[in-house]
């Protein structure tokens, strides 16, 4: 076995370079696989009063209460349907949260070096929740920073401005 092969193999196995891809409408996103705890079907939500409309509610994951956020509403993307909807349960900085997405697609291997930096956009729209872009099989996949896009500060902020 050549050294190069082993190296390549190690890279393939290492979870650090793996990303979970999901779709919101017709757009593709991915997050580091290490953040993902599990992917589940649509559970029963309990709505909480006074939460923003993208807040689906809270759910019971084996005795743990988890907040779930609808990524499509949060990012203002038109959903493509409910058929394949899933919730990605992820660990973000000590908080476990669920992200409701249109569909979970696949897991890809990308070396860190191949992640493209996010383009400088000529707009004032906040895009700090984008960590970079991945080109994969002629598709552009957005590497999204879930912690920032689901951000708690954001929630509090909206809560305050709403009241």
């Amino acid at each position: 076995m050549s050294e190069e092969y082993i190296k390549k193999h190690q890279m393939m196995v290492s979870t650090e370079n793996r990303y979970l891809c999901f779709s919101l409408g017709n757009e593709h996103f991915s997050i580091p696989l290490l953040q993902v705890k599990e992917v589940i079907g649509i559970p029963d939500f309990t709505q909480i009063p006074y939460t923003p409309n993208y807040f689906c509610g809270i759910m019971n994951l084996r005795g743990k209460i988890i907040s779930v956020i609808d990524m499509r509403k949060k990012l203002n993307i038109v959903s493509k349907g409910t058929e394949e909807n899933s919730v990605i349960v992820c660990d973000l900085e000590n908080i476990t949260m669920g992200a409701l997405v249109d569909s979970v697609d696949n897991v890809i291997n990308i070396e860190k070096e191949k992640i493209l930096p996010k383009p400088n956009m000529q707009s004032s729209i906040k895009n700090d929740y984008i960590d970079g872009l991945i080109e994969f099989k002629n598709q552009i996949i957005v590497l999204i920073n879930l912690a920032k896009s689901l951000s708690i500060e954001d929630l509090i902020h909206i809560e305050k401005s709403g009241s």
Binding site: T51, I58, I65, M97, I152
Partner: peptide, 11 residues
């Protein structure tokens, strides 16, 4: 059960 940190703001 406690709610997550993210919901603490709810009064």
């Amino acid at each position: 059960k406690n709610l997550g940190e993210e919901l603490r703001c709810e009064s």
